[in-house]
């Protein structure tokens, strides 16, 4: 079944220059493997479309049940240069949680 990522994970995002980092954290440790399988860099890039001009990198933190994404060239030049309302990517974590992920009822139980 398809469920929004927000059902199994929370998130926080911020900036480093023109790169936004989005940390996605499983509420339950056992759901971490769903994140690893479903929340790929390709899907994250597709989810944000033309908001992200560069590549998306992914790092794994199994100890925290979390993934860390770097969204390059995603902030309109970053910090002081950016003309965007969300120049620091503060809301992108919440934005990623609307991604739909595929998981079996057994996995979600």
């Amino acid at each position: 079944m398809k469920v929004p990522l927000s059902r199994i994970a929370h998130a926080r995002s911020g900036d480093k220059g023109d790169t936004s980092n989005v940390g996605v954290i499983a509420y339950e440790e056992r759901h971490y493997r769903i994140l690893v399988r479903e929340v790929t860099p390709e899907r994250v890039k597709a989810h944000f479309g033309d908001l992200v001009n560069g590549e998306v990198e992914r790092f794994e933190l199994p100890n925290l049940g979390a993934l860390n994404f770097l969204l390059h060239e995603a902030l309109g030049g970053g910090g002081t240069l950016s003309l965007r309302i969300d120049a620091q990517g503060k809301t992108l974590g919440a934005g990623l949680l609307s991604l739909e992920v595929e998981a079996s009822e057994q996995e979600l139980a």
């Binding site: 929370h10 926080r12 480093k16 940390g23 954290i25 790092f59």
Partner: peptide, 16 residues
């Protein structure tokens, strides 16, 4: 655990 994890991930690059 949730509030601390969120802050650990804040403005993080390569975690290693």
């Amino acid at each position: 655990l949730e509030t601390v994890k969120e802050q650990l991930l804040y403005e993080l690059g390569d975690p290693k």
